[in-house]
Amino acid sequence: MIREDDFQERRKHIANLSDKELYDRFWEMTAQVVDPLLELGRKNTTPSVERAVLLRMGVSSLDTQKIVEGAMDRGLMGHGTGNILYKVSKAKNISIRETSEAMARGEYWDDAVAMFKEGK
């Protein structure tokens, strides 16, 4: 079976785009694919899933429950505990491990709430 080469025909609608326009189009189309998946994650996550994510990030099993509860208490579960941990870690310029230990002790939660209320 020989496949007919129709590449030139299929690319007509993008043939005249610059590299910058192609780049922008790629990311626009990627967002169209990924956004519904992110929305599903926001609406359908569970404490169990969030603890599993934290464990895979190297967070101590003892700390995962405290971090998940902290996120739930503050209405941040929809943002994902791994995402919260990562963004706080970057903002504080400390490791994921240090951030997780601090958040399990109750630190940095005000920063996390402010960060996600502002839409960062």
Rank of each mutant, 00 (worst) to 15 (best):
V33I: 14
N93T: 06
A102M: 06
Q8M: 07
A52Y: 14
G41D: 05
L76V: 09
Q8F: 00
N16Q: 06
G80P: 02
V53H: 03
V68Y: 07
G119T: 03
E107I: 12
V68D: 01
T45Q: 02
Q32F: 09
D19P: 05
Y108E: 02
V53K: 07
Q32D: 15
A15C: 00
E4P: 12
Y23L: 09
T81A: 11
G119Q: 02
T30Q: 14
M29T: 01
R56M: 02
E50Q: 14
V113L: 03
Q8P: 05
T64C: 06
L62D: 14
R51K: 15
I84S: 00
S89W: 12
K20D: 12
A112G: 12
K43R: 15
D5N: 00
Y108Q: 00
Y108I: 00
T81L: 08
A71L: 05
S100A: 13
I84R: 03
R3W: 02
E4N: 13
G41I: 09
E107Q: 15
D6C: 01
K43F: 01
R42E: 12
K117F: 05
G78T: 08
G106R: 02
M72L: 15
T81F: 04
F7Y: 08
L62E: 15
I14R: 06
K92D: 08
S95Q: 02
I67D: 06
E107Y: 01
P47K: 07
K66F: 03
R11N: 04
V33W: 04
K90C: 09
D111K: 04
S60Y: 08
E98V: 10
A114V: 11
P36E: 10
E39F: 10
D24N: 12
D24P: 02
A104M: 01
E50D: 05
